[in-house]
């Protein structure tokens, strides 16, 4: 069996009396695309931040390519970060930098690449997400939300990572732009041969980009299966979520 590139084993995380993650077990194999579904406040973002090392779990283990990175903030964690890409929900582009400096941020700062080489590589990567060289010298505030998402995607893929995280990649976009972003994600993940973990509550996005889908509910993974099985999950929670019904075991977070 192939060793998973990322494994979460019994991960728990609480904020005071709010137990957000109650023992999350999940893994993703190299080259596979896993989508984690869950309602608002279900703990998807917290799970992602734990996996990225932006939060430390209260209990459980996180393994990256077989190595325990749960509490490691040193070289092991840095080695992991050099092999991952992350697309934040808001894009999280640095507004004091130009578009190309955002895309080439890791090359300029961590890899100490020459600016001229880094710019060339950034423009090449921007082309992969259908953005021309004309946007390279603009600031993030000067481009549209859809373009910002593309820039953020370019930043996530420029170093050819082995694993890419996508946090609500289509939130705030119109359906056509959202579909274009999904296409780009699919195309680039396949081109890189990378594994992908996407958290979303957008079913159209999940169906498009997923090999496998998992459902997070009350801090635990309650179902996981091939994306093609999502309509025949046999799980009431998944059915309610997939069909977007207010009635069912999941109470709307009002």
């Amino acid at each position: 069996m192939t060793q998973p590139i990322l494994e979460l084993k019994g991960v728990e995380k609480s904020f005071g009396s709010n137990h957000v993650l109650r023992g999350v077990d999940i893994d993703v194999a190299p080259g596979r695309s896993l989508v984690v579904l869950g309602g608002s406040g279900s703990g998807k973002s917290v799970m992602l931040k734990n996996a990225l090392g932006l939060m430390t779990p209260d209990a459980g283990k996180i393994l990256f390519d077989g190595q325990d990175v749960t509490n490691n903030q040193g070289k092991t964690r840095e080695a992991m970060r050099s092999r991952i890409g992350m697309l934040f929900q808001s894009g999280a582009l640095f507004d004091s930098l130009t578009v190309w400096e955002n895309v080439a941020f890791r090359l300029l700062n961590a890899d100490k690449m020459k600016r001229s080489d880094a710019k060339e590589q950034a423009i090449e990567t921007l082309k992969k997400v259908r953005l021309g060289a004309s946007v390279a010298d603009l600031r993030p505030a000067e481009i549209s939300g859809g373009m910002q998402k593309r820039v953020a995607l370019a930043r996530a893929i420029i170093t050819k990572p082995d694993l890419i995280f996508f946090d609500e990649p289509t939130t705030g976009l119109d359906p056509i732009t959202a579909d274009a972003i999904n296409d780009l994600i699919l195309e680039q993940v396949k081109a890189l041969g990378a594994a992908a973990v996407t958290i979303t509550h957008d079913m159209a996005s999940a169906r498009k980009v997923a090999d496998e889908i998992a459902m997070l509910f009350e801090g635990k993974i309650i179902w996981r299966g091939p994306a093609s099985e999502i309509d025949r999950s046999g799980n009431d929670h998944v059915d309610q979520f997939v069909h977007g019904r207010a009635d069912g075991p999941i109470q709307p977070s009002l």
């Binding site: 932006l54 840095e78 970060r81 999280a92 582009l93 640095f94 700062n109 961590a110 930043r155």
Partner: peptide
């Protein structure tokens, strides 16, 4: 503003 727009988290994921 960088914190609430996740730019500081982005810095960390980019090894800065």
């Amino acid at each position: 503003a960088m914190k609430v727009t996740e730019q500081i988290d982005a810095l960390k994921t980019l090894s800065a």
